[in-house]
Design a protein around this nucleic acid. Sequence first.
DNA 1: TTGTATGCGTTATCAC
DNA 2: GTGATAACGCATACAA
Lengths: 339, 339
Amino acid sequence: MARQVSPALRPHRVTAADVARKAGVSRSAVSRAFTEGAYLDKDKRAHILQVAAELGYRPNALAAGLQGRGRSNLVAIMTGDLVNHYDGEILARMIRQLTAIGKWSFVLSAGGEMPEADVTGVLGFPLDAMILRGGSVPDDVVAHCAKLKIPLIVSGRILEGPGIDSVCCDNARGAAMAVQGLIAKGRRRIAYLGGQADLTSDRERRKGFLDAVRAAGLEPAAQVDGDYSFEGGFAAARALLSSHPEIDGLFCANDAMALGAQAVATGELGRSVPENLSIIGFDDIAMARWPMIALSTIRNDMDMTVTQIMRLLTARLKDPEAPSQTIRTAPEFIARGTH
Amino acid sequence: MARQVSPALRPHRVTAADVARKAGVSRSAVSRAFTEGAYLDKDKRAHILQVAAELGYRPNALAAGLQGRGRSNLVAIMTGDLVNHYDGEILARMIRQLTAIGKWSFVLSAGGEMPEADVTGVLGFPLDAMILRGGSVPDDVVAHCAKLKIPLIVSGRILEGPGIDSVCCDNARGAAMAVQGLIAKGRRRIAYLGGQADLTSDRERRKGFLDAVRAAGLEPAAQVDGDYSFEGGFAAARALLSSHPEIDGLFCANDAMALGAQAVATGELGRSVPENLSIIGFDDIAMARWPMIALSTIRNDMDMTVTQIMRLLTARLKDPEAPSQTIRTAPEFIARGTH
DNA sequence: TTGTATGCGTTATCAC
DNA sequence: GTGATAACGCATACAA
């Protein structure tokens, strides 16, 4: 009577032992064959690699990573929902850079707040580092990482703490540039269309805006919150421009909202941009360059950001005890057709 | 004389043994405390979890995954460079769905062709499955996965082979819809602005276009290749409309190119859309809905695609030997303002 | 209910 | 150069 065998949940994976058996060598030899610069007869190595290829063997990264020494080469990236171009493009670049230095990227994405369970779950892996990209993340992340001594690289906001490095655009300066751009065009009734008020990026851009407006001897015409989305910018701008038709200059906390504002202003509200309303965004997403859009904006340079993230990461891995670093990347005013 | 200790590359991570020692229990008890439904005294478990929390312990996922039974819960996603909205949004949704069913996503991204080394590298992990999203991927991937018995879910193209499931929009039908939409508006000199000619999606859309045009008793006015990017569509449309000014209808293989075409047509070339030139895209990216864009397009439904990917994935995990499935998702004509 | 012993697949150390 | 052997950290079958 045949015994009922429970189905193999995970199909058997060829192991070093299998290769060793078939190649007539020891397991260690197989291991060495895959280790750069290990002592092993040249022909023997060739033979082993040959057999391994036939069998479709490759070292199990899980088992290799379990080894005490060395690093796991695992990095977790927590990012938003990628509805805006900026996050998506920057994510792809980061992943490519990480891959280039031999790191594997676990990516977590959340619409709103990142679920705590996901965070603690991925921390089950012995990560080399964790990267936080914008958005809102539970505060516990910091505590968790600190306890596990997992380096934290934050981008899009500044976080304080041992083992935490940040890279963030100089938001206040960028906002000031936008205000100056508007004023240079003769705008005097200038409003701020913000993102979620609880995000650092919004707070800094708002403050930069207010300071610059007042430094110019003006008062802000209005301030309103959005959510960094096109739709949010659309709705917020409709409300804002309807109740304050005198506004002639609008600084938006990111490009997506600026486009939403432009859409509702030139469409429904019958304003013309830039003739009687100037709009300036923030980020300089790819779309902002498109001729039919031609959005004047503050560039939050992606390449620079990713470069700095990688620099901080490698430095931190080299010396886990080094003091925290905070990098402010320089914003740049990009004058196009909407101001 | 103090012996020079080499710096711990990876900081010591708290293990189950550490917790057991401090809690005064056995290692197995600790393990059980973290295993749902394992026999363990309620108070004892509480105590262990308490101590674990103090120490910041959590089971090492690497070691847990090494366990023979069960699955690794690791999934690799290979995707493009995320310069177009569509890939980014779909990626984020996939990741969230995967996280929801307890899978971790390794994400690989490539500008052009995915480097072979990256593919083989990530296959070092005992993946539950691998997901291919559009773009071009070395043929070896299929062979590698087959050899390792790693299920392959392909989206955006159809791939044949045991253990490979595909979900792809019915591109030909979508293209036909676009052609019919153009003809319904009285367009007769209709051209095709394609993507990379070596991609399945382009081939199918092109064929659907040609068949539909001829079925209507017409001949295609022209065909040209782009690269699925805004800039590519811009350049290709400029060449196309300059050499064939008689064209009055343009079907573009994706939305990004359609927007590029629209930009150059209404800008540089002085055409007006849709008055004397109709443009229809493919995908229905978020931007297509924006009032100032209002792109007529063929919806390649993202939610449906992700849903089907997840369905195929779970089915394949349940029965690795099941016959391959190919799902064709239904395209939908979205009439807006450019045709 | 609990502790002991074993195996997961690898790399590194150690003798030979 | 090469093969045995000990970790790595965990889950679990088995014995108590």
